[in-house]
Amino acid sequence: MALYNTHTGKPVVNRTRNAIIMVVLILFALATLFPIYFMLISSFGDPVEAGAMSYSLFPSKISFESYKFFFNYSDHSIRWLLNSLIVAASVMISNVFFASLAGYAFSKIRFKGRAVLFSVLLVSMMIPYQVTQVPLYILIVNTFEIQNTYTAMIVPGLVTVYNIFLAKQFMGSIPNEILECAKIEGCNQFQIYFKIILPLSKTVLAVMAILTFMESWNTFFWPFLVTNTMDMQTIQVGLKNFRFANTTYFAPMMAGATISALPMFILFFSLQKYFLEGVTVGAVKG
């Protein structure tokens, strides 16, 4: 990169500079990774109370007893993972479908009130979630009386404004000529959406799917509010309960944390490209 002066003349200078850069970056990387490393390593320890052991930064042995301890804590521990999966998958699928439909309509179909409606949606993104949480809770729990159901966890997130915005931004760049051709060929809007828009937007939809799934999997607050029995909780809520019930069991707590985070790590390492793309895609034109 030309930000750095490349022709200082002396290769020694360049080499030492690069070495210093690498050392700084690696140190910072170690600091970033340390908590995750600590979590993984400690989860293989024995499930004894913290007072009886001292933490070690290097594994002396590998035992899965702590994982067993975590799953034995409640009859529903496995169910927590399943619940998280059900909720996250439903939210992901409905977001990809409905956000892309709405994004297409907002970017390519003309109808009265389009601009106004879209700006209302954009403005609503600025509202902090604290404002809506109390009325939403009252609506779900007192009005609809669907507390402790999958519906309660899924429905408020069926389609998010952020995803509509993402879809609209991307689909706006699809050339109109293609759509006009399709229309002349006799396609109606549904066919255009399914046969042209969806295939062309694969990448952005994949990014949307992954980020939505991750966010939903990791979310703690809303499932925590609307569930009240162990069998309906998600893994994040379950982990929190486990922590408050077993405040001294160090290794099992780390095992629980690993269990809640591992699926996302696996997803991240296998679909890294989409994750990293997803970070920039929404930020380019704030």
Binding site: F38, M39, N218, F220, R243, G256, A261, M264
Partner: peptide, 21 residues
């Protein structure tokens, strides 16, 4: 990827780990 990794872990998991740190 390394710097982004903590953002992938759930907030609850991270808080459990930091609690012990």
């Amino acid at each position: 990827a390394v710097y982004y990794l903590p953002a992938v872990a759930s907030g609850v998991a991270l808080s459990v780990v930091w609690l012990w740190i």
